[in-house]
Amino acid sequence: MLTQQLLNGVLSSGIYALYAVGFTMIFGIMGVLNMAHADFGTVAAFAVIWTVSAGLAPVEAVLAASVITLLVALLVERLAMRPGRRFKGDAAIEMPLIGTIGAGMILQNAAALIFGNKAIVFSFNMRAFVRVGGLLVSKGLVVSLIVSAVLLALLEFLVNRTDFGRQIRAVAQNRNAAEIMGINSERVILVTFAITAALAGIAGCLVGLSYGLVSPYMAVSYAIKGLVAMIVGGVGSLPGAVLGALLIGVVEAITVSQFGSQMRDVGVFVVLMAVLAVRPSGLLRVAASR
């Protein structure tokens, strides 16, 4: 039973990691939280449902949904985050925080208005299980974990091994210095934002693929998991976000197995508080400071 739950936890951590990495990248480079980040997953999932129901072939539907998600994300960045960059101090942090909370609410309610309040069936699903050595393995979650692992490996390569990755790290560490060195920091921020939105969009679709259902309000739960994973791992650290996601996936699964699904989130927050008490900067603290 415990082994089964551990497996479930590891498998579900892939989706959490995609959300967590997005949160941590945006915080790392912009110094603010994008509270609408997980909502891009909802937008992508519902955009897929909409484009498929409109009669597009699967590949075309996914491409169209990607464009829709990207446009929505760039609109959120333009309206809810960029104005804050004109300010210094608390206003620069608070404005995008409140702005993106509002943007998230608008996106959730827009989805509810268009598709209804209830969870609906996703256009593609892999809810079937296979039995491996006495354990039940969700095909959808295996695919999610593989997709997440590949994307995270690509992201790690991009950030640490490419010129654009160096630019991302430079802007994250010292925006003035980056500008002095000829780096267009606004462009780097915008491209990074688009990358994180794409990760969230893919995560939202993987939720639909793995569990078969998507809800207009599902972002709330995934945003909390993503944020907790980011903090537990160490804010601004990509490996930390992945480690945090893995820990949360496993702890959540163990909590469910021991105390029931109504206690699902309790274990997650206990881990958060324990890490904050023992190691406030997270398990893998970021070497660079802003």
């Binding site: 790290r169 430079a170 560490q173 010292n174 002095i180 970021v286 070497a287 660079a288 400071s289």
Partner: peptide, 8 residues
């Protein structure tokens, strides 16, 4: 003050 990138 140099304005380096502290983590690079």
């Amino acid at each position: 003050g140099r304005e380096l990138f502290p983590g690079l």
